[in-house]
Measured scan of single mutants.
Amino acid sequence: TTLHFDLDGKKLQYTGVSEEIARLVEELKRRGVDLKEIVRILEELLK
């Protein structure tokens, strides 16, 4: 799965993300978590 974000005018793309992580990101968005925080979490998970 590939995730795309537009953060402060920067286009971020994460490829090869598992379905689980993609679902987690969608859930965080639904809960109103700040996009910067979501990206920070995502980068930690993908290390």
Rank of each mutant, 00 (worst) to 15 (best):
E19Q: 12
E20W: 06
K36N: 12
L35N: 10
L45E: 12
L28S: 06
F5N: 01
I38P: 00
L46K: 03
G16W: 03
K29Y: 11
E26I: 08
R23Q: 15
K47V: 12
V25H: 02
I41V: 13
E27I: 07
L24I: 14
K36I: 10
S18D: 06
L24D: 14
R23S: 15
R30C: 07
K10S: 08
Y14N: 00
L3R: 00
E19S: 09
R23H: 14
A22H: 08
Q13I: 14
E26F: 08
Q13M: 14
A22F: 11
D6G: 01
T1D: 09
E44K: 09
E26H: 13
V39Y: 02
A22P: 01
I41W: 08
T1N: 13
L42N: 00
Q13Y: 10
L24E: 15
E43P: 02
L45M: 12
E44D: 13
L12H: 07
L7R: 00
V33H: 06
L45G: 05
V25T: 04
L42P: 00
G9L: 01
V33N: 06
T15G: 07
E19R: 05
T15I: 12
T15P: 10
Q13G: 04
E26K: 07
T2S: 10
D6L: 07
L7Y: 07
Q13C: 08
K11V: 05
T2E: 11
L45A: 15
T15M: 07
R23N: 15
L42G: 00
S18V: 06
L35H: 10
L24N: 13
L35Q: 10
T15S: 10
E37K: 09
G16E: 10
D8H: 03
L42D: 00
K47R: 12
R23A: 15
E44Y: 10
S18R: 05
K47Q: 14
G9V: 01
A22I: 11
L3G: 01
V25W: 01
E20L: 05
K11Q: 12
E43A: 04
T2R: 03
L28E: 09
E44W: 09
E44I: 12
R31W: 07
K36T: 13
G32N: 15
E37M: 09
T15A: 10
R40Y: 09
D34H: 10
E26R: 06
R31E: 15
V33G: 07
E43N: 09
E37R: 07
D8S: 03
V39C: 03
E27S: 08
E37H: 07
E20F: 04
R40T: 14
L3Q: 01
D6Y: 12
V25P: 01
T2P: 02
L45Y: 08
R40L: 10
E20V: 06
R30D: 12
T15H: 14
Y14F: 14
I21A: 09
D6I: 07
G32D: 13
K10Q: 13
F5L: 05
L7N: 02
I41A: 08
E43Q: 05
K10W: 04
G16N: 15
L7C: 06
L3D: 02
G16K: 04
Y14V: 04
R31H: 13
E27W: 05
S18K: 06
I41K: 09
K29C: 09
H4T: 13
T1R: 11
L3T: 01
S18P: 15
R30M: 14
D6E: 15
Q13R: 07
K36L: 12
G16R: 04
A22S: 09
K36Y: 13
E43V: 06
G16A: 05
T2I: 08
E27N: 09
E26S: 09
R23K: 13
L24Y: 15
L42T: 04
E19D: 14
E44N: 08
K11F: 06
E43T: 06
V33A: 08
D6M: 04
A22C: 10
T1G: 13
G32R: 07
G9Y: 01
R30L: 15
Q13V: 15
L12V: 15
V25Q: 01
V25E: 00
A22V: 15
K10P: 02
F5G: 01
D8I: 01
G16Q: 07
R30K: 14
E37L: 09
L46Y: 04
G9A: 02
G32V: 06
E43I: 05
E19V: 13
E26Q: 12
R30S: 14
T15C: 07
G16F: 04
F5Y: 02
L24A: 14
R40G: 13
I21Y: 06
K11A: 07
V33I: 11
V39I: 14
T15K: 07
K36D: 07
R23F: 12
E26G: 11
Q13W: 10
H4F: 14
G9I: 01
E19Y: 08
G9M: 01
V25N: 02
V17W: 00
L12W: 05
R31Q: 15
E20N: 07
V39W: 02
D6N: 05
L7P: 00
T1A: 10
V17C: 02
R23E: 15
